[in-house]
Simulated assay, not measured.
Amino acid sequence: MFKRKLTALDYPSPDNFNANDDKQFRNLVIWLEDQKVRHYKIEDRKALRDIDSPTWPKVFSQYLSDVACPIQSDNKIEHLQWLLGFSIRLEYADNVDKYKGQTSETVKKTEMNAPKIVSANPLDNLDFDSPDFKKGVNALAQLLHVTPHKDHLITLKAVSKVACHRLSAEALENPDTVIVKGKPFPFRETELGFQLGDNVLNDAANILRLLYIHDLRDLQTRINESIVSVQSVTANPKTDTKLGKVGF
């Protein structure tokens, strides 16, 4: 009953979707939020992404309220029907020029003439919540000495940052540009200015403050670079002396 809408939204394997399977149902909800609805910021989707949590139904109920779902019943199939329709409306709104000239005849003709394309990208068929995927992420984290997080997707994000910063072609050609030099900063010896009543919390607060200062310095550096770039244009203006005029 969902096949046509799922196909319209380019959902992987619409033929095999079973709305009565809780895992498939929850995976579809987070897929719709990630790919089509995008109502929450990425970092705010954590609870919705935790499909194995016993509190997920409550999180889903709050999500429906946040996207202004008008369905008042407790029937999850009705909720999903509305959410799919809502996603299709958003998809259309994002691509009006693409769809406004489509008719049933043009769609049939396109389907008949279009070649069957099978994606060669293995990432398209990955189940990001499967045990094997989580195990692979944790193995990468261990290999790169990244402290694992309980949310494997956050761990993957950290692994990605390390790989992009330390393992890029430029970094491998010039390792001195990414290797941290100097003595470690004794953050435990600095004055925090307040006490949280726990040594671990104090250490965390000190680290967060240092990271914040680092971000401020990086921002100031970028601002200075922008000022220099603007000054290079405004401090040496080019004039056309032929347009000059002396006297009245």
Score class of each variant (00 low, 15 high):
Pro115Phe: 07
Met1His: 12
Asp129Ile: 03
Lys157Pro: 00
Phe248Lys: 14
Arg217Glu: 15
Asp129His: 09
Asp97Asn: 12
Asn224Asp: 15
Glu173Gln: 15
Glu111Arg: 13
Thr103Tyr: 00
Ser229Val: 01
Arg4Met: 09
Leu140Trp: 11
Glu43Ile: 04
Ala163Asn: 08
Asp218Tyr: 09
Ala68Glu: 15
Pro57Met: 04
Asn202Thr: 02
Phe17Ile: 09
Lys46Met: 05
Trp31His: 11
Trp56Pro: 03
Ala163Thr: 15
Asp132Arg: 08
Ala205Arg: 05
Glu225Leu: 14
Leu48Gln: 06
Thr106Asn: 07
Pro122Ser: 12
Asp132Tyr: 05
Leu144Arg: 04
His165Trp: 01
Gly101Thr: 07
Leu172Phe: 02
Asn20Thr: 13
Asn121Asp: 15
Ile42Leu: 11
Ser87Arg: 01
Ala235His: 14
Lys5Pro: 00
Pro184Gln: 10
Ser232Leu: 07
Trp82Ile: 04
Asn236Leu: 06
Asp215Phe: 04
Val233Leu: 13
Gly136Gln: 09
Lys134Ile: 10
Arg188Thr: 10
Phe2Val: 01
Ile227His: 03
Asp127Met: 04
Lys150Gly: 02
Asp97Phe: 04
Leu140Ile: 12
Val246Ile: 14
Val162Ile: 15
Pro131Tyr: 00
Gln220Trp: 05
Asp94Phe: 03
Ala141Trp: 01
Gly244Met: 09
Asn20His: 13
Asp94Lys: 12
Arg49Cys: 07
Thr55Phe: 10
Val230Ala: 10
Leu201Tyr: 08
Asn95Asp: 08
Asp240Ala: 06
Gln62Met: 09
Glu225Ser: 13
Phe128Tyr: 15
Thr221Gly: 12
Asn202Asp: 14
Tyr212Lys: 14
His214Arg: 14
Leu6Cys: 07
Phe128His: 08
Glu33Asn: 05
Tyr11Thr: 10
Ala47Gly: 03
Val137Cys: 05
Asn95Ser: 12
Asp176Arg: 10
Tyr11Ile: 13
Asn27His: 11
Ala120Trp: 02
Val246Leu: 13
Gln220Val: 09
Asp218Phe: 09
Arg166Gln: 09
Leu123Arg: 13
Gly85Val: 01
Lys161Trp: 05
Glu189Lys: 15
Pro70Ile: 02
Tyr99Pro: 05
Asp97Ser: 12
Phe128Gln: 04
His165Gly: 06
Pro57Lys: 05
Leu84Gln: 02
Phe25Leu: 13
Val228Cys: 01
Tyr63Ala: 00
Pro54Arg: 08
Met112Lys: 15
Asp34Cys: 04
Asp240Trp: 08
Leu196Thr: 06
Leu156Pro: 00
Glu91His: 12
Asp50Ala: 11
Pro12Leu: 08
Ser168Cys: 05
Val137Glu: 00
Asn121Gln: 07
Asn27Asp: 11
Leu211Lys: 12
Tyr99Thr: 07
Gln62His: 10
Asp129Lys: 01
Ile207Asp: 00
Gln102Arg: 11
Phe128Val: 12
Ser73Ala: 05
Tyr99Cys: 06
Val96Ala: 05
Leu28Pro: 01
Ile117His: 10
Lys46Gly: 01
Val137Met: 07
Ala204Glu: 09
